[in-house]
């Protein structure tokens, strides 16, 4: 379970979001919606422990992320898959090296074993043929798939975080990425947090939805609750 309790997160003294209460039950996917600059990526940085809460606490499976030491964070992050906005693949490495990066850095596996793992992951995201390509030879959708594969390299993930996984993609590719997210979810029974500002994609992948506006969470609930809301911000969001 991921639980935010009265969390404030921000840079320097300025809070970007405050008083956030969220709860993602095991095996569920929560979608975070909000306009650009509202602090969606910032929330993910909180879950990753890159950013410490200025107030409140973030709890993932019983451990308080803000309290973890640097070496505990390392172990903690092994069970978290993070898919960055735009993928953030290392462009000096091949696709295969990107996916195997974590294994080369942190395990003493030999090359064959790592390559086998890379191939398994690429097969899972449907891209076995690009193993020796460089990221800049891939299309946007392929990059996101590779990023998803890379984020699952350490071991089977417990939590998956996706930062705008479909932004800038055509509707078909967006859809296939959403299907992939669902597939990861059902295969590994992970908890997921998906950040997006696309409502269609949100409803395609999510079980729960949470809206951020004016640095606060203004509504959390399932699809029904969202669609019944008469909050003006949410109504505009729904009508686009």
């Amino acid at each position: 379970m991921i639980r935010f309790e009265h969390v404030a997160l921000g840079y320097a003294d300025r809070p970007v979001v405050q008083d956030v209460d969220l709860e993602v039950p095991d095996g569920k996917t929560m979608v975070i919606l909000g306009d650009s600059g509202s602090g969606k990526s910032t929330l993910l940085k909180g879950v990753l422990g890159i950013l410490k809460p200025q107030a409140g606490q973030i709890e993932v499976n019983g451990s308080n992320v803000g309290d973890l030491e640097e070496n505990e964070l390392l172990a903690y992050r092994q069970r978290i898959g993070m898919v960055f906005q735009e993928g953030a693949l290392f462009d000096s490495l091949t696709v295969g090296e990107n996916i195997g990066f974590w294994l080369w850095e942190h395990t003493d596996w030999n090359d064959e074993k790592i390559e086998e793992r890379i191939r398994t992951l690429l097969r899972f995201v449907g891209l076995e043929s690009v193993i020796d390509k460089r990221p800049d030879e891939l299309s946007g959708g392929m990059k996101r798939r590779v990023a998803i594969a890379r984020s699952m390299a350490p071991q089977d993930p417990l939590v998956m975080l996706y930062d705008e996984p479909t932004t800038g993609l055509d509707p078909f590719t967006s859809r296939s990425i959403c299907d992939l997210i669902r597939q990861v979810q059902s295969e590994f029974q992970v908890m997921s947090l998906v950040v997006t500002h696309d409502l269609h994609d949100a409803f395609r992948v999510g079980d729960l939805f949470s809206f951020i506006h004016d640095s606060r969470v203004i509504l959390t609930g399932n699809r029904e609750k969202i669609e019944r809301s008469d909050d003006p911000f949410i109504r505009t969001f729904l009508s686009t």
Binding site: I50, L74, R77, I80, F90, W102, E105
Partner: peptide
């Protein structure tokens, strides 16, 4: 950021 998240 990706490096940091991957523990490097």
């Amino acid at each position: 950021d990706a490096l940091r998240v991957m523990g490097v």
